[in-house]
Design a protein around this nucleic acid. Structure first.
Lengths: 353, 353
DNA sequence: TTTTCTGACGTTAACGCTATCAGAGCCCCA
DNA sequence: TGGGGCTCTGATAGCGTTAACGTCAGAAAA
């Protein structure tokens, strides 16, 4: 046993250890052929493919995608950034996005900002570190650094939910302002005069703020002589529970109100149910409107007037858009196709107002 | 300009292009120092760190984690497998898991099976391809191949939500059977005699099936002479909408029923609200019970008797467990600590029964 | 028969980073 | 004053895969 002939032992700690080389040896082919069998099975002969498949089974090989990413500079990965998964609308958007891209072999990285703009930039940076082939992000308001990161990443970026004047790349969403305008108009048309906006506005939730702004703009247009009634609920949580507190504030600050406009179905349901519990007639005493058309909105008693938002469609369309853009060879990014897709919204008039 | 001295141009197409070498050159240090600055900032001198930070800013460098994974065989990634993100409970579990592991620098890969066991194995394989450092998976029922994959992966695996006799590695959850037993006992103690189980059972949802089994077992124990009343709702969707259909079936098939037991708050709320709409007294005519203690359960009128499940705690504990296990040097996996964490459940008695 | 083409596979050289070891400079204490 | 231990930095050798190109046999075309 000569020293020189001893197999070089790796000093480095190894994790599991079956590599493509092992599979290749087992199947009696080169690594490249194994690689081809994995990525383009049609380019290897059927018998060879069989050999390789058997070898993979026997060795329990699992393709190391990290190495694959490095060598091919394609990660087959899409990154998605949302405020939180806890809100069902975003979870649904992500689910739809996932359905679409997973069908084409992509995997999904999700990151959530918890509505904190300052976290977003770090999150984007660390997600981009994985070299995703595409990026989906909820919202169109970002820090300068975040925008710069996304623009320089060299991958398609789709912003969702909001619409802004200058999207980074593509955007898909609807106008929160217009939606609130539709609500206010509807209330005015059904005889309401003293509307109160009492939406819970979380710091960092620019969509909710746009709804408030939409409320103010519409109110000022319809009732130019009045100051729009706003109740500050920024200290409250976006829960049904806090709907009771919202109701109390409205009654205290605007005892003459005849409609309560919320920025989410959650709060709206909370207000509505609190009102029912306390024997306040809805829509007799107040009209109540929500936002989002959550599942319970049509079922609670009285059912909730609200804005239906195509959450799933946003995710699905974003996925399709990304697939489309990712399929183009890098550098050959087609600049055709609309920059903006407006998926619209729908005013759903129900019993509550 | 001699031919031999010309810099070797890469024939290969390059994506973006700023590498650590560029940063190192800009900062006038070696790549290794840049690497250290990124992963262990405390081990480089403050002035050097400053130089490197400036160089990173100037070059707009984004750390390539794919290469990092390959070189270090740590991906700083956790994979999570759930049935679907569309159900808020799983979204919440994932959110909590994410909160815990992201705080320690990990990123989350999510994959969903859509309640299809056959997809699970492929999903696991492709997620393992990313070489995650840990894996969280909802459920304890898996195919043989899936189990084999997870066992061979050489990483900590936490199964969540269910409890099984033989976990793959660690498990955290509660007994669905016991929870249903608690509901049946409660109904019996409050004078109900003719309970009907009408839960919507999706194929692949073993948890819902366990609840039905729990119902059957408890009923047979309490009323040994009777056949447990089951209404088949396997063709219905798990939506509030279909609660109306559930109610009709119960009334048709078991007109003498005095309690309707559901396997989800969603259906329960649907049944309850359909009953209210039709003027059927709850809990006068029927008691109605749900499962999950969703947000609306305590707010709808009448409020819903249900089982509270610590969704968030499951995610958070799973995250902590994974962090714990991942921090141990590979190979040095400690085998101490409990294999099973039972997070329990709570029967919440409200107005509906 | 020679040439061209095609399909199937192999060889080589990266991809961009980090583990490891080694070395340089510095301070401290016997 | 000479080590012994620090702290900080650099050179080297991979990590496991794939792109690009090369080879080679056999079919098709000339």
């Amino acid at each position: 046993m000569s020293e020189t002939k001893a197999p070089r032992r790796k000093a480095r700690a190894r994790r599991a250890g079956v590599t493509m080389a092992d599979v290749a040896a087992e199947a009696g082919v080169s690594m490249q052929t194994v690689s081809r069998a994995l990525r383009e099975p049609r380019t290897v002969a059927p018998e060879t493919l069989e050999l390789i498949t058997a070898a993979i089974r026997k060795t329990h090989y699992v393709h190391n995608l990290a190495a694959s990413v490095l060598a091919s500079s394609r990660s087959m990965t899409v990154a998605a950034i949302i405020p939180t998964l806890s809100t069902s609308v975003f979870a649904e958007t992500i689910q739809s996005l996932s359905d679409v891209v997973v069908a084409k072999g992509y995997q999904l990285f999700v990151g959530n900002t918890d509505y904190r703009l300052d976290r977003e930039e770090d999150l984007i940076r660390s997600l981009l570190g994985r070299r995703p082939d595409g990026l989906f992000i909820v919202g169109t308001r970002h820090t300068r650094g975040a925008v710069s990161l996304m623009k320089r990443a060299g991958i398609p970026v789709v912003e969702g939910w909001d619409l802004s004047r200058r999207p980074i790349d593509r955007q898909i969403g609807f106008s929160n302002t217009d939606a609130m305008d539709a609500i206010v108009r509807h209330l005015a048309e059904t005889g309401r005069r003293r509307l109160v906006f009492a939406g819970v506005l979380r710091a960092g939730d620019s969509r909710a703020r746009m709804r408030r702004d939409g409320f103010v703009a519409a109110s000022e247009r319809i009732w130019p002589d009045e100051t729009p009634r706003l109740v500050d609920c920024s200290d409250l949580a976006l829960t049904m529970e806090d709907g009771g507190a919202v109701l109390e504030r409205v009654e205290r600050e605007h005892p003459d109100a005849d409609a309560i406009v919320l920025s989410s179905d959650i709060t709206a349901a909370g207000v509505l149910l609190a009102a029912m519990r306390r024997g306040i007639a809805v829509p007799g005493r107040f009209a109540i409107t929500g936002f989002g058309d959550f599942e319970f909105a049509r079922h609670i008693i009285p059912s909730l007037t609200t804005i239906a938002v195509p959450t799933r469609r946003i995710g699905a369309e974003a996925g399709r858009l990304l697939l489309d853009l990712m399929s183009d060879a890098a550098g050959t990014r087609r600049e055709d196709g609309p920059k903006t897709i407006d998926v619209g919204f729908e005013l759903i008039v129900r019993e509550s107002g």
